[in-house]
Structure formats: structure tokens, C-alpha cells
Amino acid sequence: MTRLDRTAMACRVAQDIPEGAYVNLGIGLPTRVADFLPADREIFLHSENGLLGMGPSPAPGEEDSDLINAGKQPVTLLTGGCFFHHADSFAMMRGGHIDICVLGAFQVARNGDLANWHTGEAGAIPAVGGAMDLAVGARQTFVMMELFTRSGESKLVDRCSYPLTGLACVSRVYTDHGVFELHDDAAHVTELVSGLSLQELRARVGLELVDAR
């Protein structure tokens, strides 16, 4: 079996972002999707701190501390891009104007529940940022994550044990083992990496997986 590495996962997600889409890429792993968006498509990247038409990282020495992304890294603005304040930025999400958001996750349940903001551990400082707004606001919420934790537990689960970010909000999960569509309270496998059987995956995930390939 050949697992996808993080670069290959980012590349895989990027293929599914259509021309003209307004897209928010969450901090961390999803940010990498920007590097693989097909050059022949015009795609609008939204950053919740207040810009549309986000471009790539600036050249060294060209950084501007007033021009950053949601991860607080320096970025650029594409020609035609624009700035706006926070109320407008989150209206774009809640109002259903953002077509797709791509988020990382601690856990995703088969019904689409998402847990990605807090482990709930005692003593851990909670921080939520825009995760809850994105999860419920975007027209489609995609998750991008490694399917298993370091200790081998599936992050695609029957019910999330971590505190929830949003209810029944995830429609698709891209992982290093395959792609899952979530609907009708079940995970539907649409793609598997080569050398991995559905039976084998079911055993490791511990969930009924519908074959939708």
C-alpha cells in the first residue's frame, strides 16, 4: 500500500476545487492546497482576517506586516483582490457565500460531525478562532487529515469523543488512505490508495464503509 504524503494529499484536494470557487483554506495542512491549484483555473482564496484574492508568499524582503493570512504568515494580494473588515469576512462564511472550506480535524464522525478545535484535555488552553464559523458557514466543508493517529486510532469515527466544532457539517474527507463522502449517516469510499483493500480498511477504521468507487 502506498499512503499519500502531505504534499500528495494537498495535490489531490486541489484537483477538486473548480474554476470560480470562493475557497477558504484552514491553517496548517490545508494551507498547502494553495500551492497545487491548477494554473488554468481562476479560484478566489478567502482569508478570514479580511482578504479575497489571496496570493502566494512574498519574495524574501517583500513581506508586509499589514498583509497576512489567517495563520499570521505574510502573503500577497492578487490583482483584483480586496480587503474588508471582520464582520464582512464572517458574513461571507455564515451567509453561504464561501463555496468550499478545507479544514484539518482531530476527528470526523460518519454523520459529518467535526471535532478540530480542542482536545478537551485538562489544563489545555482552548482556542477556537474561525473554525466553528467555517464549519457551519461554508456551502461545503472538506476535511483533510491523516486517517489514523500516531498510535493507530482512526480519526474517522462513529461519534466524536473530542469537543465538537460543528454538527453534521463535513461532506468529504481527504486522507492519506483514500477519499470519503459523508452522507446518509455513513462514510462512502470513493477512492482508495493502490494496494489497500476495502476490507482491510474497514477492519482498521472499525466502521461500516460503503463502497462508492
Binding site: 471582520h86 464572517f90 477556537v128
Partner: peptide
Amino acid sequence: AWRAGTIELELVPQGNLAA
């Protein structure tokens, strides 16, 4: 400050904070 218990935190989702 948080670990020392000298600051109270009210955590609000970012869009709710703005709204």
C-alpha cells in the same frame, strides 16, 4: 497568567466575536 489563575478567559468563536 492563565495557568497562574490571574486572568479570566471568555472564549468566543471569531465570527461570533465580530457579530
